[in-house]
Simulated scan of single mutants.
Amino acid sequence: MSRTIVLAVAIAAIGAGAYYYLTQPEPTPAEQLQSAAEDAGDAVSEAAQDATDAVSEAASSVADQATEGASSIAAQATDAAEQAGEAATDLANQAGEEVAALANQGQDLLNSWVENGALSLENFDYDTMVASVQESNLAQELKTQAIQILDDIKASPETIAVKFQELRDLLSGQ
């Protein structure tokens, strides 16, 4: 019965962490990626800590009543919790690196337009910019939003200053 309690506490803690991670709202694409990476790391670390605490408490109780078998189970549960925490940390680090790479891609794209003169108050090369957005590695949602802003500029050239700022904010992840 002690083994069942230890395993149930460990599974409940990991499940709570996973539920917390999966039900978080996602504000903007760039913030969504960053927030997901941070939340995943925090939730899994918290779940691993809760599981470790629960296992430690259960181990103390079991040690008072049980045999070496119960101690072995507690050690295995602790190892499993630590491995889950390490895996979550690795995933969070990887997600953070991907977020930074995506933000850099958008900023690089915007910089190339400005440097090449495709996007300025005096010049607006719609076809070149749309083609570069479509060929980029940006997320589809960002591509769609960027092309919509470019369409708005094409439809109303007098709004280029305002739309340029919207485009800058979108592609730089602000």
Rank of each mutant, 00 (worst) to 15 (best):
M1I: 12
M1V: 07
M1D: 07
M1T: 11
S2H: 06
S2E: 12
T4I: 09
V6M: 08
L7R: 05
A10Y: 02
I14D: 11
A16L: 02
A18R: 03
Y20V: 02
T23H: 11
Q24E: 15
E26C: 08
E26T: 12
P29F: 08
A30Y: 03
A30L: 07
E31M: 13
E31F: 08
Q32Y: 08
Q34P: 02
A37F: 01
D39K: 07
A40D: 05
G41Y: 03
V44L: 12
V44H: 10
S45G: 12
S45F: 06
S45M: 09
E46K: 11
A47N: 03
A47W: 01
A47E: 04
Q49K: 10
D50G: 12
E57W: 11
A59L: 09
S61I: 05
Q65P: 05
T67D: 12
A70T: 08
A70C: 12
S71W: 06
S71T: 10
S71P: 02
S72D: 15
I73Y: 10
A74K: 00
T78K: 08
D79K: 06
D79R: 09
A80S: 13
E82S: 10
E82D: 14
Q83E: 15
A84H: 09
G85V: 00
E86C: 13
A88E: 02
A88L: 01
T89C: 02
L91F: 14
L91K: 04
N93D: 12
Q94P: 00
A95L: 12
E97I: 00
A100W: 00
A101P: 00
N104D: 14
Q105N: 06
Q105I: 02
Q105A: 09
G106E: 04
L109R: 00
L110S: 12
L110R: 14
S112Q: 04
S112A: 11
S112V: 00
W113T: 00
V114G: 11
V114T: 13
E115T: 13
S120M: 07
L121A: 14
D125I: 10
D127P: 05
T128A: 14
M129S: 07
N137F: 03
L138W: 01
E141A: 10
K143T: 03
K143V: 09
T144C: 06
A146C: 04
I147A: 02
I147H: 02
I149L: 15
L150F: 10
L150V: 06
D152F: 03
A155V: 03
E158M: 09
K163T: 03
K163P: 04
K163H: 07
F164N: 04
F164A: 12
E166Y: 01
E166S: 05
R168S: 04
D169H: 03
L170S: 10
L171C: 11
L171I: 01
L171G: 02
S172M: 07
G173I: 00
Q174L: 09
Q174W: 05
Q174G: 14
